[in-house]
Each structure stands twice: as structure tokens, then as C-alpha cells.
Design a protein around this nucleic acid. Structure first.
Lengths: 197, 197
DNA sequence: GCGTATCAATACGCCACCGTATCAAGGAGA
DNA sequence: TCTCCTTGATACGGTGGCGTATTGATACGC
């Protein structure tokens, strides 16, 4: 049988490792099972990486750049209110289904220093963007950072709940609730506009 | 030298398995390493459980009852406003440090059906308590469920951030922000004590 | 005190995966 | 065309963990 599919590259292995991480965590990044799913034997793996650790590092790097690229799309939105709304609704609807899976699975391996470093950077970048957005919306710096933290926490948790619960709860009610909770940024002033129903 | 420590029981093994889960996920529940940390050999393990799966099941059951017990403490608070505030501040301060670690580590193994079942039940119980609280505070049922979901998501995410970030962010600023975001549900009661800075 | 059930140690076979040769193509450039 | 480099296959040893005897030691009921 001739090789109808082209040969594999190092990125192919990294991507396969990422999908393995998405369901199974770091423990699922094993050379021989990965080779099986790719349809080759592990002999070819060691032509691209020296060992398993290098593959894990490459997969984490791939994930980080992927996350940063996704973040750049939101950072390009100039209007802070619209940017915030986009961030929230995107998460509620779980538009990008792959990325949060990787993120969640990595939580299980958060004690691994490489994982901690990658997750920490991704979290920090997202927190920075959220904090900047809230500052642009008028919140003082400390409160902007705090609210960014709470909002990002909700984002993480919602993606978690969406993945563990079988019933799809990305309803408009949920989106509205998240919006009323996190959208009005500055209701701390005197004429505090408490969200009404 | 006499045996200063008493012999081990099945619960000892389950508890050791839980702490192993807390840092390392299900993959860390290995009989021989566990026996090493307990100071015995694995020969004794098979006197308490038939195999590794039984140990995992016992550990998950132990975790569930532990979570339910912790939830009962909050459910005992009759005043819904105070109950909500306790729930939020407890999480922000990360009073119970063990439980969330287990919960987070289990996220990495959320594809395991046993884990999915346990996590699903724990999540559901907490969501129910939160939704009831919001209903008691005057929110209509659908919105109460939605806001409970968002609030619980934030709780989960905050505990995640607290564990991955090195800097301790359980500041009062954060607690205040979480309170202003999630506490005033509908300002239902007359003298609703909205926390002011 | 004696026997019995429980807890623990040792030893063994088994399997999955890692890593290292070593070899066989197949393609790009001289 | 010939040669080298890359990709991939095969085989081997090593390690870690699971599960199963088998046996020794200890506590507890009687």
C-alpha cells in the first residue's frame, strides 16, 4: 500500500499530544498510544523529538501561542464595552470547544512545573486584558483587577460546568445573567444602577 | 522497637488516596507508591480492597460525603443573605484547603465516568443550595438558577486561580468585589446591607 | 492461654510504556 | 545517477505498576 497521506511533522505530533491532553491530561501523552492513533509506530516519533518531555514542552508551547492568538482577536476590539460583551458571550456559548478542554485537563496536572508555567502565563494574559477593559470602562485600578479576577474565574468555571454537565446550559438566560452581573462595570458610584429585572 | 503507630484501616487508604488525588489526579492513585508513603508494602493493601478500582471508588465516596457534610454547615444558616455571604467569603479565603484541591484535580479526569458522576453530584448539590438561596432572596426561579450557575462558576474559578497563582489574592478587595457582584441579588429586603467600601 | 481473623511482607508473573539501537526505504541536491 | 538526510519499522532491554500467591505476625474473642 503506498503512502496516500503525507508524512508527519513535529507539529502533527504536538497537535496530537494536545488532543490527548484534552481528554486524559498529561498522563495521556504517551508515545506509543499516540503513534497508534497517528497510524505509525513510535520509531518515527524519535525522529522529531528526543523524548517524551520534549513533546510535552512543544505541545504546551503550541497551546500557549494558540491561546495568545485567540486573545489577540478580542484585544483588537477597540470599544471596551463591546470587547467585554464579546468575551462573556463567547465563553457562555463555548465557541472554541477545544481550548478550554485543554485548559481544564491541565488543571489536573497543575503541580507539574511546566504546566504551571504555561497555565500561569495564559491566565495572566487574559486577566490583563480583562483588567485593562474594566479600567477603560472607568473602574479604579485595584477594583478593575479584582473584578477582572472574579469575571475570569466565572469564565473558567462556566466552561468547566459546560464540560461536566451533560445538559447544555448555554441558554440565553445564562448569557443575560452573566451580562447583568459582569457588564455594568461602574455601578459603584452614587447613583448606583442596581441591575433590575 | 515497637510499632508506635497503629495498623491501617480501609479509610486510611481511602484518605491517602484522596491526598494523592489532590496532587496528581487519578493517575497518582497507585497502590505501590501509596503503600510507600504509608510505610507499608502493597501486600497489606489487598487485605482492605480487592483492587485499585475499589480504592478509587471508596476515595470518591469519601470525598462526596465530605463535601456534603461541608455543605450542610451552610445549609443550616437560615438567613439567605448571610448564607450567601458566608459561601462567598469562605471560598475567597479558601478556608477549606483540601477539598477544592481534590475537586480541581478531578477536573483533569472528568472523562472517567466514576469521576464525572461524583463531581456531577457535588456540583448539583451546591448549585441547588445557591439557587435556593437566590430564590429566597427574591429572584424568579429561572434567573435564580442562572445566577447560581454564574456564582458557582466564579467560586470554582477563584479556587482554581488561588491554587495556580503563587501570589495570594485572597485580599479584602477581592472579597468586596465578589460581594458587590454577587451579593445584591434584587435588593429584596428593606435594609439590604449592600457592602460598601 | 488458644485459635482465628486480620494486617503485613516477600516473591512472582504480567503488561504498558519509555528509550535505544539498527535497518529499510524514499526524496532532494551534487 | 549517486549520495545523504529524513521518515518510518522492528527489535530489545529497562522500569514501574497491577494483581496473586504464600507466609509470617499481631490482635481479639473465647
Amino acid at each position: 500500500m503506498p503512502h496516500e497521506s503525507t508524512r508527519l511533522s513535529a507539529r502533527d505530533w504536538a497537535r496530537a499530544a494536545l488532543t490527548a491532553i484534552a481528554d486524559g491530561g498529561l498522563a495521556a501523552v504517551a508515545v506509543e498510544p499516540l503513534a497508534r492513533t497517528l497510524g505509525v509506530t513510535k520509531g518515527s516519533f524519535y525522529a522529531h523529538y528526543r523524548n517524551r518531555d520534549e513533546l510535552i514542552a512543544a505541545a504546551l508551547a503550541e497551546w500557549r501561542t494558540h491561546c495568545e492568538d485567540g486573545l489577540a482577536d478580542f484585544a483588537a476590539i477597540t470599544d471596551p464595552a463591546r470587547r467585554l460583551r464579546e468575551l462573556l458571550t463567547t465563553v457562555v456559548r463555548s465557541v472554541r470547544p477545544l481550548v478550554p478542554s485543554v485548559h481544564l485537563s491541565l488543571l489536573g496536572d497543575r503541580n507539574d512545573p511546566r504546566v504551571a508555567e504555561a497555565v500561569g502565563h495564559v491566565d495572566q494574559a487574559r486577566l490583563d486584558l480583562l483588567a485593562t477593559t474594566y479600567r477603560e470602562l472607568g473602574l479604579p485600578s485595584a477594583r478593575a483587577a479584582a473584578r477582572a479576577r472574579v469575571a475570569y474565574a466565572a469564565i473558567l468555571g462556566l466552561s468547566h460546568l459546560a464540560q461536566t454537565d451533560p445538559d447544555a446550559p448555554r441558554s440565553t438566560v445564562l448569557a443575560n445573567e452573566a451580562a447583568t452581573v459582569f457588564l455594568p462595570p461602574v455601578r459603584a458610584s452614587r447613583h448606583a444602577s442596581v441591575p433590575k429585572e
